[in-house]
């Protein structure tokens, strides 16, 4: 299960996708005006996609057992909670 060797080709495809998405990030942020929050959300969305790709392919999470995925998701979940509740405070203060 764990000794899955990721071939060179997959790594190259992963890298190209990431570079492409970086270009998309720059271009959308610089030349497409969606209003401040619109651009923020779009950029964060692309960043999340990129992070998922790194997690999945470079970090082999796609080939891992359930436990390590749960650990990674736990980290992200509690982080969202932290951001969310603190943000609520400022929003309603």
């Amino acid at each position: 299960m764990s000794h899955h060797i990721v071939p060179l080709k997959t790594n190259i495809i992963t890298l190209s996708t990431l570079v492409f998405l970086t270009a998309v990030t720059v271009l959308t942020a610089k030349y497409i005006h969606l209003g401040e929050n619109g651009n923020l959300v779009l950029a964060m969305f692309i960043a999340c996609v990129k992070a998922t790709i790194v997690f999945g392919w470079f970090m082999h999470l796609k080939y891992e057992g359930i436990m390590n995925r749960v650990i990674a998701l736990c980290g992200l979940g509690f982080l969202l909670l932290f951001v969310g509740l603190s943000y609520l405070d400022l929003f309603f203060r």
Partner: peptide
């Protein structure tokens, strides 16, 4: 335990709603 930290801050200027 991760959902309750604000109860230390009821009187420190945290929003009443939260």
């Amino acid at each position: 335990s991760f959902l309750v930290w604000g109860h230390h801050m009821f009187v420190s200027g945290q929003s009443g709603f939260l």
